[in-house]
């Protein structure tokens, strides 16, 4: 049987069940609002959003691999492209681009110009320190951790803070060698 190549993000997105982005956007807004009320400190909200994203990421990677037919990436560059072109498209229906590579190919930026999380959103003065989309960085971090890559992710640009796009810096810290998680005698 000939090997099946990875499917394009558009093709996958066209074939999965979809929901209105406004329901998604408003639900996310309700979550952020609840967190702000409960936790009070903007810093804590950033942390909690990242944690929620991480929880999603470690589960989402399974669906991603199952539906995308992506095989092992040869290097981190390919990984970043796959996230931007297939990952974002498949779940959020938007494409991102990868840019700003450092010399040794372990750090790059994923740039989003379209972001369904932020429709209708404006940061009030009291929330200026909020990384509203911090859930996304958690998702990427969690998903990559499940494929043996420890990463550090930070926001470089944020349209809610007046920048012209959303830019996530993804830095590869280390590749964790694969280990079998189970031990027969336990």
């Amino acid at each position: 049987m000939p090997p099946v190549g990875p499917r394009s993000g558009d093709a996958i997105f066209a074939n999965v069940e979809r929901v209105n982005a406004e329901l998604f956007t408003l639900t996310y807004g309700a979550i952020v609002r609840q967190l702000l009320t409960d936790l009070e400190e903007v810093e804590e909200v950033n942390k909690q959003l990242d944690q929620m994203g991480y929880n999603i990421g470690i589960r989402l990677i399974d669906e991603f691999l199952a539906k995308s037919n992506v095989s092992r990436c040869v290097d981190f560059k390919e990984t970043a492209e796959v996230i931007a072109k297939i990952g974002f498209k498949m779940f959020l229906g938007v494409t991102a681009s990868v840019t700003n590579w450092d010399a040794d190919g372990t750090c790059c930026s994923i740039v989003l110009e379209d972001n369904p999380l932020v429709d209708f959103v404006e940061l009030p003065d009291t929330c200026q320190g909020l990384y509203y989309c911090n859930i996304l960085s958690g998702v990427v971090r969690g998903a990559l951790e499940m494929v043996s890559m420890k990463t550090e992710i930070s926001w470089i640009r944020d349209m809610l803070r007046g920048d012209d796009a959303f830019e996530l810096q993804v830095k590869l810290l280390k590749q964790v060698p694969e280990e079998y998680p189970y031990k027969d005698d336990e």
Binding site: V16, R18, V19, A21, L23, F91, L92, P116
Partner: peptide
């Protein structure tokens, strides 16, 4: 008219 995947939601 924009959509996201049901899984994302």
């Amino acid at each position: 008219k924009q959509e996201v995947s049901l899984s994302a939601f």
